[in-house]
Write a protein that binds this DNA or RNA. Structure first.
Lengths: 155, 155
DNA sequence: CCATATTAGACAGAGAGACTGACGATGAAA
DNA sequence: TTTCATCGTCAGTCTCTCTGTCTAATATGG
């Protein structure tokens, strides 16, 4: 944990990568620790690829996989896990006999609400650290950046 | 209980988590794609846990592991890989007969320089997208945030 | 209406990358 | 010297993602 001050990254000027990595890592670690405490001890980081994209209307495994940028086999693996843990169920898709819909259970909905509330709580903590105005500025800059990076990716 | 929205994340207001995740993901993907093109096709994301923390003076596996927050076995596995790929070598630690130092080779140093240059290039791209002043502001906010989050983690 | 191509998902196997536990060798301290 | 801590390794396991192959169901052109 202690830094010896002889790294490639000069201590005074963190690389742009670490600038983004560190808060994300911190957030991730905090969130899953809190979810554990809030009564969801069996939720792992991988599950978020499903949880981030699920809706109460249900979603197909193939769609979830495509949105997450992974294979449908991998997505099916994660969905299976969430089924076993009781956070989602599968229902037949009335509009396509081949497809199944992944739908959150009541327990799954409680999880989604908890995760969202924790996200808000984290943002409030950041506002307390930076000041409300600066936190708002940070959000705004990151939102702009994400939009513009999508539109104009680096060469 | 909100039930009218189809998506858990309202489209207009990304969660705080996604705000950090997206630029980091974009950056990672871009960086390793570029490294591939720059002549380092065998470098994978995992290797960064070593590369981020290595110095030209060398570092012990145990230290690398502790700084990366992982086990020394896992770190040794990654170091072995980098040895085989020719990016680092191990040298005996003159101050401790049990220990070995992980030192970058010439090839490893070229990689570190390339990675750092690409990081700068990415930052310049961000400056072009947001404007130089806003990009500087973003860097400043993220630096402050990282320092303050370390000092005062969320509850 | 049928033949063919496409699509949704399942099954099997492989490999990366992380973990735990146990261990020998070396060093530090009583 | 004896005892305990530390450095790195060996062996085994688990999670997660990938390819490749397969079936059942759907969509489409003739």
């Amino acid at each position: 944990m202690k830094s010896d001050g002889r790294h490639i990254d000069p201590p005074g000027r963190p690389t742009f990568g670490s600038l983004f990595r560190e808060p994300y890592q911190t957030y991730l670690t905090w969130l899953y620790e809190r979810l554990k405490r809030e009564g969801f001890p069996d939720i792992r980081v991988t599950h978020s690829t499903v949880l981030r994209r699920i809706s109460i209307d249900g979603a197909r495994v193939t769609d979830l996989a495509e949105r997450a940028g992974m294979t449908k086999q991998s997505m099916a693996y994660i969905v299976d896990d969430l089924i076993e843990l009781g956070y989602v169920t599968i229902a037949p898709d009335p509009s396509d006999g081949r497809a199944k819909l992944v739908v959150p259970t009541k327990k799954g909905e409680r999880l989604l609400v908890a995760a969202r509330d924790l996200g808000d709580m984290y943002e409030q903590h950041v506002a307390k650290l930076l000041g409300a105005g600066q936190a708002k500025k940070l959000r705004s800059l990151l939102e702009q950046l994400n939009v513009k990076l999508t539109a104009t990716p680096p060469p």
